[in-house]
Every structure is written in C-alpha cells, then in structure tokens.
Write a protein that binds this DNA or RNA. Structure first.
Lengths: 343, 343
DNA sequence: TTGTAAGCGTTATCAG
DNA sequence: CTGATAACGCTTACAA
C-alpha cells in the first residue's frame, strides 16, 4: 500500500506481543492488562493506526457500504435525495457508493452487479425509465437482500418503498386555487404512462369535484416533454377560444408552470390577478421568478433520509427484509407564493 | 454472506480441482488444459460466480474505488461534476464513493479518513469553505497518494488541479457590462479564502481597468454565504447612498444575482434598463427567471471527466503523482441573456 | 498441466 | 492475561 499505513502486525511486532493481543487491546476487550492496553493504544496513536476497512469487510462479510442506484445525478430532485442519503449514512458510519443509470436498463444491471461484487450491505434504488422487467431486483429480494426503492416503485410484491404523496399534493394545490376563487382551472399534465402523472391528475380531478366544479376533459392538456416551449404553446392555445380560456393553471411541474406564466404575461394578463398558477416540485428557480411561483414541495432529502433509515434497519436486522412490503408515503407541502394568491 | 454467492472454493470443490486451477482457468492463464478451462467456466457460469471485489482489494491492495469529497451535492454545479466523474469512473471499471462535507472542515477530515480506511485508490477533492489549513491533504500528497483537486485549488505546491478559468469568466462578464454602457458596476464577491472568489474579483477589477473605469473598494461587497437573503440585503444597502448606488451588478454566482435582482425590483427599478445583472455558474433556474439572467457557464461535467481522467492516470502510474503540479484550466462561456442587455 | 502454501489485515476460537 | 491458529476469498510463487 502506497500509504504504508500501520497495521496491527506492526504494532504487535514492535511491542513483542501477538496480533490478537493488539486487536483485543484496541477494542477494550476484557482480559487485557491495563498496562498492555496502554502501551498498545499509545503506539497505535503514535503510528496513526487505523483499521483497514477492506480487511474488516472480508472478515465480517459486512462492508458498511450501501449502494445507491439513481437515474441521473443532475436532476435537482435526485441530488436532494442523495444529499439526504449521504447524511444519514454518514451519521451511522456507512459509506455511499453511487452509480447513475442514465435511464438505461443495461447500465442498471451492470452497476447492480458491480455493487454486489463490492459487497454492499444493501441497496437504495430508483430504477431507470427503461426498466419494465424487474427480475434483477426480485432475484435479490428473494434471497432476502435488503433493498429500499424510492420515488419510482417497482412492480414487485412486498417491496419496501419510500415515495411522495403525489395525489395529495395535486389535490391541495387545486383546492387552494379553488378557494382563492378561481373558477376555471386547467391542468397541464405529464405523460400518462408515469404513475406520478396519473396521480397528480387524479388529485386535480378530485379537488375540482370536492369544490363543486365540473370536470372538463378539454381543460386537461398533456405536456409530456415538460419543457417551457411546449407549455408556452399549449397555454397560448388555451386562451384562443373562450370555452377553454382558463383563470388558473395547475402544472405538473415548475418548468411547465414557468412556460405557462411566460405565455400569460405575453398576452398582457396579470398573475395572479387574471390567472393563478401553481406548479410542482419546488424547483430552485420557482421562488425567484416573477411573481414567485406557488408550488408543491417534495421533500427530497427526507425521502433520502427515510429510505436510508429503513435500509439500515433491515441491514441491522431490526426489520425483516422481505417479510411484507411497506410503503412510506411522505407528505408534500403546498408552498403558497404570490402566483396563486388572488384574495 | 446473505447472498450465498459462489466462490472459487465452491467451484474447486465441486470439480475436484484446486483453488488455483480455478482461479487460473477463469482468467485464461497459460498452462491450463482446455478441458479444465471449459469445465470451470461452465460451472462458474452456472453458479453465477462473480469475483469478490473485497477479497481482491485486500489481496491486491487496490480497490478500484475512487473517493469524491465535495461540499454539497445539491449545488447544481457540483451535481454536474459528479455526473462527469461517475461517467468516466464507470467506463474504466472504477467505483465512486461519495461524501459531502457541508462546507465543514471537521467533516472533511472525517470523511477523508473514512475513505482512506476504505482503501480508495485516489481522491477527487473540492475542499470546504472552512478549510484554510491543508495539512490533511499535503500529508497524503507527500506520500505520493493520488489526489486531483477540482474547482477549488488548495494552497499547496505542485498539486494537480482542474478548474475553470474563473478570471476569464469574470473578465468577460464585466467587460460585457461595460460595453453595454453600464458605468458603475458593483461586484458581489465570494469568500476571500477561496481562490475562485479571488480570481473572479481579479477578473472584475481587470475588466474595469481595461474599460477605463475606476476601481472603488466600496463597490466590492462580500457575500460569503451565497444565499439570496444575504445579497438581497447587501444590494438594498448599496442603493441607500448615492455614492454606492450602482447601475450594474456582477455577482459571484447566480443565487447571489437572483437575490440582487429581487432587491432591485423591490425598489421599483427595471432590469436591464436601470440596472444590469450578470451571475455565475449557469444554474438551472437562471434562464427562467424574469428577466432571464446573463451568466458565466462552467463546464461542470467536463471538469468531472477531466479530473477523473487525470486521477486514473496517476493511479495507473501513467503519470507521476506529485512530481510536479499541473493546472488544467477549462474555458467558461458567457451566456448573454436579457438581464444585461441595455442596448 | 496442476497442486500447495503463503499472504493481504483482521478477528474468533481454543489453548495455555 | 496472552498466544497460536484458522478463516474470510483471492492470487501467485514455487513445487511437482
């Protein structure tokens, strides 16, 4: 080893005692004379001894390392999740090894293997968009290998999951708009094949119903790409005809909302006076645009924290691995800012 | 081990050969009969044998793992760097273990030790804001341990670094403001112990000078925390007195710029007509705020990629560790948006 | 062509 | 109270 780190052997040799004595002294095992203990500890200190974690892993079949499989690090949401994961892991003496799949299934399988090769004690997974077959995960789960899924839930029975309550978030957002007195609320929806999109739409519909408003399919527009231009154009189109001309917009995420806001402004309309807007996800920019955008905050780092806590419980045997599934659903928080406050 | 992964021993036992034969057969060593080779490989395949990376690390004193020490994962810039790192590491069969310091020196030292305990083959470091004493790094460098610093350069001789040309980025930004006809350009600067802050300030000063403008220390404000409130307050204060009242602001990053923009708007002033603003780092939100923020783009993932390439070269012995320093400086790009276009 | 044995750093078991 | 020894999974001289 380049670093020439001192080992137990070095200490033992220098002190003319056996390796086991040193090992025991270092860990305050019973049955070591205070004198030996002292000598050993002093020398260890002096030599700056630190136990070799790799040797420990091999010996104990435990690496104190957890693997994180994530689609893309640069997604703001995922980066907050990672931050939460890292925080809890660190606090409990665990390391985090990180791999991104770039939304590719092949890559996902590959990094999964690498992590197993490295004897990770457990896995935190948000699978790729390409993943429709979950065998590579279920195989492990059948062997009681600890895995917690977050954000994206696999089609496997009895997994342990951490997600956000998308339905509730949408419901609150739309209810809020209704309470502000907006009468014709449009939904700029996400792609229908994603569960989160469907749940947000469901929340929207239910909130309208509970507010005594009609559900009009013409007021639900799909913005699958989720970029500004798409929603800019979609919004302009809405305002062309009187029958679809809305006085409020609930967008499936903040970028879509931002596009809508630009369109509204370009028509000379005022936000929130003429049109109210609420987004989703609390992107960093949303508090900085004009007017500041009301949005539904997803607790990214809490997702990471919670998922890690669950995983560590499984690893430490405080929780059955695959006994029965568990869904932890974290609450969203509606952040009411200027863009939706009419009153 | 929970997974009950097959080992070389299992294969050897079942085939009635020795461990070494299996090991050699698996790696196509010369001097193994084709027949044995075939038998071994088939059984390995059948048992789904995968080498235990931990055992390999111990045996070879090489872990194929690199450690990344970073202030905060949620910084957009850092997340792009991580992404670049992960990409190159993966491509070369290396794992990435990730720790964030949250800008705390204590934490930095702690994670550094953890990584060394885990026998990482090398380190990619962007140190914390609190770090002014670099002993914990120089000690390692003296032992020829491979480290590449990125973004924030330590005050150590002969290190290998990857940065962005912060001076140039700042220079371009301020020159641009001057060319737009702004006359009194304030700099909201970062903490002075970071080289990047100092370089951005130098670029600012030089650009002013080259534009024939006075350097006024009262027009350089420190915003060390880098959050919105800080710069909001600082900006308000600037506008209180006529002698510090600016007509343009160059902020050391986009969040600081965003805070300044809010302050400017709150005073009823117009951007870019009354006050021009340029930020730094091209955060995701900067194109979406109103008006869109001009900013200096740093090639985050290229920094990560380059730093990782250099580190792997050092690890593989293709490059001297500490022979002599090397500075790779990547170019920034000025993105001119609405917030600074007066003409 | 294959086997034996030592060793990477640590800990657990069994003796003394 | 302390020491020998084996073992975790793998590689690699050295022997056969």
């Amino acid at each position: 080893m380049k670093l020439g780190q001192a080992t137990i052997k070095d200490i033992a040799r220098e002190l003319n005692v056996s390796n086991s004595t040193v090992s025991r002294a270092l860990k305050d095992y019973p049955g070591i004379s205070d004198e030996t203990k002292k000598k050993v500890k002093e020398l260890a200190e002096k030599l700056n001894y630190r136990p070799n974690a790799v040797a420990l892993s091999l010996r104990k079949s435990k690496s104190f390392t957890i693997g994180v499989i994530i689609p893309e690090v640069v997604h703001f949401f995922f980066s907050t999740v990672i931050s939460g994961i890292e925080e809890i892991a660190f606090k409990n003496g665990y390391n985090v090894i990180l791999c991104q799949t770039n939304e590719k299934l092949e890559r996902e399988k590959s990094v999964l293997n690498t992590m197993l090769d490295n004897q990770v004690d457990g896995l935190l997974v948000s699978y790729s968009k390409e993943t429709t077959d979950f065998d590579h995960f279920s195989k492990l789960l059948n062997l009681e290998f600890p895995i917690v899924f977050f954000d994206r839930l696999p089609e496997i029975d009895n997994t342990i999951n951490v997600t956000v309550n998308d339905y509730q978030g949408a419901y609150q957002a739309v209810k809020h708009l209704a309470e502000q007195g907006y009468k014709k609320i449009v939904h700029l929806a996400g792609p229908n094949n994603l569960a989160i999109s469907r749940k947000r739409k469901d929340g929207y519909i239910e909130a309208l119903r509970d507010s005594g408003m009609e559900i009009d399919e013409n007021l639900i527009l799909s913005c699958p790409n989720g970029d500004e231009k798409e929603s800019f154009d979609a919004t302009l189109k809405l305002f062309e005809k009187p029958e679809t001309r809305p006085d409020a917009i609930f967008a499936h995420h903040d970028i879509v909302a931002a596009g809508a806001m630009m369109a509204i402004k370009s028509l000379g309309l005022k936000i929130p006076e003429d049109v109210g807007v609420v987004g989703y996800s609390n992107w960093q920019f949303s508090s900085m645009i004009d007017p500041p955008l009301s949005t539904v905050a997803q607790p990214g780092s809490r997702i990471g924290e919670k998922a890690t806590e669950l995983l560590l419980q499984m690893i430490d045997g405080k929780r059955e691995a695959s006994a029965k599934g568990e869904n932890v659903v974290l609450d969203t928080e509606l952040l009411v800012r200027k863009s939706s406050v009419k009153i």
